[in-house]
Amino acid sequence: MSYRVVHYINQFFANIGGEDMAHVPPELREGAVGPGMALQQAWNGGAEIVSTIVCGDSYFAEHEREAREQILAWVKDAKPDIFIAGPAFNAGRYGYACANIALSVQDELNIPVLTGMYEENPGADMRDKILIVSTSNSAAGMRKAAPAMAALAFKLMNGEEIGPSVVEGYMPNGIRKNFFEKERGAKRAVRMLISKLNGKPFVTEFPMPSFDRVTPNPAVKDMSRATIALCTSGGIVPRDNPDRIEASSASRYGEYSIAGVDSLTKGAYETAHGGYDPVYANENPNRVLPVDVLRELEREGRIGKLYDVFYSTVGNGTSVAASRAYAEEYAKKLKDANVDGVIMTST
């Protein structure tokens, strides 16, 4: 038994013609066409291109909705194990079409997809959404691109785990994967420094991220009538950590009532955080979560009310995505409880 593949190419690679034929609408052909031959050869019988969809680049760009509907219908009928588009090299509209149609197939038909193109192709902007094999900037690179795409496609069809981008040859997609290098880190560092000093090219192993921004909410108008809630990433929990929140890489957050609690006393509360010296927080947990002061301000009428529940997470080694998910969940609870302002403390 061999895997079934549907392949998408443009008018040029189907030998219909160049720019002058870019207007042709989608067409379904049986078997492999053009670059598909090279893919099929690499699979050596393990997978077969059952059909090839050809579409003019201008047609796709100008009639995207119709083209997409037609192509999705054909792909659905063919029930392939993978949908492959391109490679598009540095052809802009072709790359755009490959990336977009591949994304539709992946999201709407739930079929694995793969495409390939040059890193500066506009279609490569979608590298975080679909797997894109990095190719050279001209069709002369087909000899290298086809085996790379064929190998990765076969892994996907076979349900194998995909290795890191640098090993498999796809563009970095924001998903970090571990692997063992041939040289140790210090040697790689010295080598990178020598390149940097000599003005030679080097590739960072981790491109610096950029963080998004949120517009600030309006201020609390009347503090003396406001309900203020306390949250912390410092891991304050009741004694013996009843929810067993992990010291690092926490898999959950804590939600604890402080109704009637005047101050977080030693012994009754402690920290579950593994990233800092816990002695001080355990000695007096108000040092991390200032319940004592807020209760006093509540009595004095400086704030309307201290909300009777606090939320606690361990920031230490816990991924941003996980932290975000926890906070999203409890932020909604706070909103539903008509909390007017939040004090978040971090260690």
Partner: peptide
């Protein structure tokens, strides 16, 4: 996490020691 609370529509103040991280993160 602060940003999620802000997104939910509640004003939030972040009390932290390493303020540059808080600034970077947003």
């Amino acid at each position: 996490m602060v940003k999620e609370i802000e997104r939910a529509g509640i004003p939030v103040v972040h009390m932290c020691t390493v303020t540059p991280i808080s600034v970077t993160v947003g």
